[in-house]
Nucleic acid binder design. Structure first.
Lengths: 123, 123
DNA sequence: CGGAATCCAAATTGATACTG
DNA sequence: CAGTATCAATTTGGATTCCG
């Protein structure tokens, strides 16, 4: 079977689904480039997210092999997250997305931002 | 304010949300590289999608300026979709995603595929 | 601190039927 | 062909409470 754009799109879809979710990309951007963040860091760095959602999305990313979770058995508990090797290989794509996002037409950009502000506290 | 990774991640999030949605990326991969597809083409090319979802996602992509919709006033009706200029500029990112997806570890890949097969007809 | 569990509200999605 | 409309089902998200 030849490797047409169509079969590629169908195949890639399965994997790309690992990125689907309201907070997945935001989390990944936080872990971008190999950064290590603990749970509370992520919670603080991502304004609109709830504890439940953050955990849920992290668990899914972990289950999909994109993010790794390290538990330090101490009191108080300390759990750190970072990209797996495969997750690291996603960085070029994240970077490309970053570039694309910044190239967004100003009107569009502000319109999209406006949607975001719905759930933000004040400013 | 300096342009840290954090602010970038926060800012980019607003724009990247335009890609969120169960079928958005799949659609974009279909339109990859400037391809023009009519509605029924997309419907056929994307197995699990319902007519309603396809339209909805297309409309959102259109509203976000990523996809353009061209109506040919004929009988029978003919509507074609393609990437806008800004949408085209997303291609490098899509390409990076493609590369990433193909680099997925085999076990992971088959596990993700397995999820997909739930709604596929046969093979 | 980091998380699990529960309950409930809201948004998404799907199936179906109808239309220009 | 390319939609729209409607309703039911599923998923998602948030608030709260409890635990190691």
């Amino acid at each position: 079977m030849s490797y047409t754009a169509e079969t590629a799109a169908q195949g890639v879809q399965n994997v790309v689904r690992a990125l689907e979710g309201r907070w997945k990309l935001v989390i990944l951007f936080q872990l971008f480039g190999g950064q290590v963040r603990r749970f509370s860091d992520l919670e603080r760095a991502i304004p609109g997210v709830s504890q439940k959602m953050l955990i849920q999305q992290l668990r899914q990313l972990e289950g999909d092999g994109v993010v790794a979770r390290v538990v330090h058995h101490q009191v108080p508990p300390k759990v750190e997250y970072h990209l797996t090797e495969w997750g690291q290989s996603l960085c070029p794509a994240l970077d490309a997305l970053l570039i694309w996002a910044e190239s967004a037409p100003p009107e569009l950009r502000s319109r999209l931002v406006e949607v975001m502000r719905s759930h933000e506290p004040d400013a």
